[in-house]
Design a protein around this nucleic acid. Sequence first.
DNA 1: ATAAAAACTAAACGATCGTTCAACTTTACC
DNA 2: GGTAAAGTTGAACGATCGTTTAGTTTTTAT
Lengths: 214, 214
Amino acid sequence: MSRSKRAIAPGKTSDSLLASDSSKGAETRSRLVDAVIQSVARNGLEGTTITRLCEISGLSRGLISFHFDGKDQLLEAALARAIAHYEASWDACVAGPTRTDRERLHLVIDHDLEFAAAEPDILALWWAAWGEARAKDIYRASSGARDQRFVDDLAAMFRGAGLSSAPARRAASLLNATLLGFWLQMHLEDDAGNLGRLRTAGHALVDALLAPAR
Amino acid sequence: MSRSKRAIAPGKTSDSLLASDSSKGAETRSRLVDAVIQSVARNGLEGTTITRLCEISGLSRGLISFHFDGKDQLLEAALARAIAHYEASWDACVAGPTRTDRERLHLVIDHDLEFAAAEPDILALWWAAWGEARAKDIYRASSGARDQRFVDDLAAMFRGAGLSSAPARRAASLLNATLLGFWLQMHLEDDAGNLGRLRTAGHALVDALLAPAR
DNA sequence: ATAAAAACTAAACGATCGTTCAACTTTACC
DNA sequence: GGTAAAGTTGAACGATCGTTTAGTTTTTAT
């Protein structure tokens, strides 16, 4: 009975996210996810094969099917970690010392650009997933959830900075799109000099969007 | 001698672009490119196999190696067509009846959104290529060229609308990023209702960017 | 200490990948 | 209309894909 193996294996995506499971298997799962993120950035989604993941992680072939039931689920787990990583970073940014909402919006821009600069591999995984979004529903769903919450938070900041409900929502959606565009640019050409230029452009955008409320 | 086959085969990417070659081979090449664009949108880059392309196009396996020397080069040709398609559409938009540059900028937004709505498959191919950009240099290079020219045109319009050189360049880069963000949103969720919302948001952005020069 | 559960290894599996090739058909040209 | 080139076909190739499996080691618990 091959199906029973799944019941035995405790490898679920939630475990690797929480990292609260300190068992040996959890660490192996984490190393496999690491390997995926590294490989997708280097070899693309197509070039990310079981063999390659074993080379990178130094683990044996069978483990992938043992811990995650299949390569696809491992990819999902990697994407889940990427999302969790970003959200944790986002939470830390938002939960910082209270300032004016205008300052907060500027900080958000800095945060996103710094995240992209610090984690190019995670960004690459994200883009790879978006690239296949129309083919694999999983990718689309996971990114959609992130988007919703992100835009909501931004809208709240715009309201706090003086915009009324509808314009705030529009401004949030706009800023969200722009930041995604920034991410794409950083993904395509990892020019460190670009970062400063994008930063000032982003700040200018926030100021322009807030101008009518000044 | 297998290599000599390449010399015989007139299948080059430039041919399929110009479409000036009315030979039988040119049409087959075009049908193969069509199949790629359709398959990538439906099955993703990973799911786009020779077998699948043959199913879609109704052609036989050997043709891909005969006309393009290998699957990779066929993918390049498909990407080249996507870029050419966009640029032709862009040229037509810019070359339209002369108006104020502000109106022109609004038209650019409409154009990009309409293009995305009209050609979701081409957009999907584009995103798939961007997703693998770090792994395959070809993809990065081709998109970079498009970006440069696009931003230059936008900057000229912003200058024409009253902005000085540096702010115009910044505004162009900003609008470019935002439009890419719009494209991503349309790629992820093909909600037709979204289009109008994005349109007004884009127009608002242009107005905000031009506000100081009013 | 010992038995059960979990973790791991590496060989082997069938399926499918992209490519090659010899044979065949269509097109172009004199 | 006949000859050569271009175009096309589908079977076959070796390589590699993701998965399974039997056997071994390590961890956990009594």
